[in-house]
């Protein structure tokens, strides 16, 4: 038995943490790439980064690494900032405190406290990479502690659903932006390597295709690879299986709306062909993935969280 409000909180804990990890990876890679790029250009350019994390400030894109980190990592008035996401994950964990293990809570709380402390010390600006390791490791630890200390029942499935919906949508959005903005980048260009690294996928890609980095292969790897945990296909499979498990555990019949949508998304990726995707209209295809994720979210919410009371009262 799981309370609806608590299920919702569990789902959002992992969604927010996934988002925080995604954003900090992008920042980490971008700061690193900019150090190379600045050899033949003037000034920092964070426009694209801000666009992909949907951070539009009135002042335009930040003009220095320090300003970038302040805006995208620490500024809690920016709801997408890393600290705002971790704070939101922690607030949700507080709401679900009796459902998650104490080890999970303490791990998440320690990450939050550490991040606030690092900001107070102000030392991160010397080594921003240290900051990203802190967050990435913190999120990994939380995932590991979760798997090791919490029963793999319904609550755990909600955590899983949140993490993988966020991941599928975020990876698809990132690939979409890269293909829209840089259609004619030469192969092997650092931007493609950067895209892979932003998804923690560079090493895994090389083992699959060698270090010969080509845009169509990058797209194939990030969208359609069945084994790499950050690919859209992999994430869609987990969303489907989590929703199926939840339907079973709550005594719903198979084939509810959320489950059907997730199954359809998963199937389209299982049987997808990268040349068709890129040859037809990649933007439409990738935008569809985002829409599917939003619909799956809505359908699961109506089924388990915000269902109308009349439908649930005893006859």
């Amino acid at each position: 038995m799981l309370q609806s409000r608590v299920a919702d909180s569990l789902y959002w804990i992992s969604r927010y943490l996934e988002r925080a990890g995604h954003t900090i990876r992008l920042i980490d890679v971008r700061l690193d790439l900019e150090l190379d790029r600045r050899a033949d250009a003037d000034g920092w350019d964070f426009t694209r980064l801000c666009a992909v994390v949907k951070c539009e400030t009135a002042a335009g894109a930040p003009a220095s690494p320090a300003a970038l980190v302040e805006t995208l990592v620490f500024d809690v008035s920016n709801r997408g900032s890393v600290l705002a996401c971790i704070t939101a994950a922690r607030d949700n964990a507080r709401q679900a405190r009796e459902e998650i293990s104490s080890d999970m809570w303490e791990q998440l709380n320690a990450l939050y406290l550490r991040l606030k402390q690092v900001r107070g010390e102000g030392t991160w600006s010397i080594r921003p990479h240290y900051l990203s390791r802190l967050v990435i490791e913190g999120v990994h630890l939380f995932e590991g502690v979760t798997d090791a200390t919490m029963g793999h029942g319904e609550g755990w499935q909600f955590l899983r659903a949140g993490r993988f919906i966020e991941r599928a949508a975020a990876t698809a959005a990132l690939v979409d932006l890269q293909f829209r903005d840089t259609p004619r980048l030469p192969a092997n260009h650092v931007e493609w390597v950067g895209l892979l690294r932003s998804c923690a996928a560079f090493e895994a890609y090389c083992r699959c295709y060698t270090a010969d980095v080509r845009p169509d292969r990058v797209a194939e790897f990030l969208l359609l690879n069945a084994e790499f945990p950050r690919s859209v296909r992999f994430a869609a499979a987990r969303v489907e299986s989590a929703l199926r498990a939840i339907a079973q555990l709550t005594g719903r019949g198979a084939g509810g709306r959320a489950e059907r949508l997730a199954g359809r998304l998963h199937a389209s990726l299982d049987y997808g062909q990268v040349d068709e995707i890129l040859g037809e209209d990649p933007h439409a295809y990738l935008a569809d993935i985002g829409r599917y994720c939003a619909q799956i979210h809505d359908a699961a919410h109506v089924s388990y969280i915000s269902y109308p009371i009349e439908s649930a009262l005893p006859a």
Binding site: L2, Q3, R97, E98
Partner: peptide, 22 residues
Amino acid sequence: ALVEGRDLLVHDNVVYMRTTAG
């Protein structure tokens, strides 16, 4: 379970809690 007022409802003088399984 830890509940808030909004998680509970009363119908026909019986108190219910909203769970994912109804």
